[in-house]
Design a binder for these strands. Sequence first.
DNA 1: ATAAAGTAAGTGTGCACTCACTTGCCACAA
DNA 2: TTGTGGCAAGTGAGTGCACACTTACTTTAT
Lengths: 217, 217
Amino acid sequence: MAINNVEALFAESLNELELTKKQKSVLRASLTLFSEQGFDRTSTSDIARVAGVSEGTVYKQFKTKEGILKALLGPFIQQVLPKAAGEFLDTFANTNVPDFETFLRRIVADRLTFFETNKLQLKIFIQEILSNSDMAATFINKTVGGAITRITAVMKFYQQKNEIVDWDPVRIVRYIMSTMLGYALPNLIQPDKKLNIEQSTDEVVEFIMRGIGIKKS
Amino acid sequence: MAINNVEALFAESLNELELTKKQKSVLRASLTLFSEQGFDRTSTSDIARVAGVSEGTVYKQFKTKEGILKALLGPFIQQVLPKAAGEFLDTFANTNVPDFETFLRRIVADRLTFFETNKLQLKIFIQEILSNSDMAATFINKTVGGAITRITAVMKFYQQKNEIVDWDPVRIVRYIMSTMLGYALPNLIQPDKKLNIEQSTDEVVEFIMRGIGIKKS
DNA sequence: ATAAAGTAAGTGTGCACTCACTTGCCACAA
DNA sequence: TTGTGGCAAGTGAGTGCACACTTACTTTAT
């Protein structure tokens, strides 16, 4: 039976969907092609050819071409921000609250790893969000909106402990995100280069801590 | 006569090309449509309708649909990085060399203004560079490559004066760029919002100076 | 035996681009 | 000033092709 979009959108990741070999190969082919040429410049016959199946098979598995896109991006979108927000919450659940630098390092390493692992999805996602205003609006309202309020609370916490500067939490989050993006984006444009996670994490943390940290005297 | 792509690519800006009213209206319509829906989802008949001309006229002015894209992006690409590099060089020509913060503030204000003014072109450019590997390669080799060497020299200069930390200049440039992008990108996704240049500049400079500056004792 | 999985040749539509034609512009002669 | 020839600017119906999707059929699995 053809994959239902809703089902795919709420699955934790592609691997956790029950997929046959052929379904996986169609998704894998689409992921490659979409990220290389863009969604619109990829034809369904291309996908079929690269996946090594007939075009009819593609349509037995996914009702529409856009269904493939949603199956690829759904799990990704679920994880871009909420996971980071989850980390923040975990910190509070933990009675032994780490200092800000430790906390920051954990998140940066986690998100950089995520970006590196999901490089192709990230590239497709950015393309899509820039040319599809519905998707942009949905993403901002549902995903970003929810994350902001939770993250804000954590920032205020560390501000009260006088570990970081007293700027608007949104501003601080912006810097953390954009500094990480500064490492991730060049890798999207030149996909052959691989991100050195450890070194990148060290550099990001070093820069951010100078930028927003407060030295204990 | 139809606009020659080469001519368009090397013109300083669209305004400096000699354009008839109809040519301008085609370009204006394309700029809007491409930035809203993306190049591939915009049809030439859409462009003609929005521009208020016939489809034939569009093709009298531009040989192909891609010609329109190049006419829009050419002048933009000429200015994204080289202008910034030019600023760097000016600093050296000037006998009265400013301190790093002054210098940084000038560049940040200049580039943020440029991004805000050319918001739509920037959006189209990012879409294109993510789905067109030729364009990505050309941009990196010609535009980025040339700029890096010149900027590196300037950073080393300020490092020798002990005004900024002794990190790889490329790394420093990365932070300056990505911090500015952190302000520009949200505006691309939500085009109705307008960037407050003055405040953004102050914030960027404040953060970057903390992040890479060295306090004189 | 039957139902799902797979196939590949269709089918209709939308699109980039063309072409045969009309309109508007202007130099210049009467 | 006005008529006229020539040429660029403009038009929109037309053309062919590529693509998303369907359908009638065959293979495979149980």
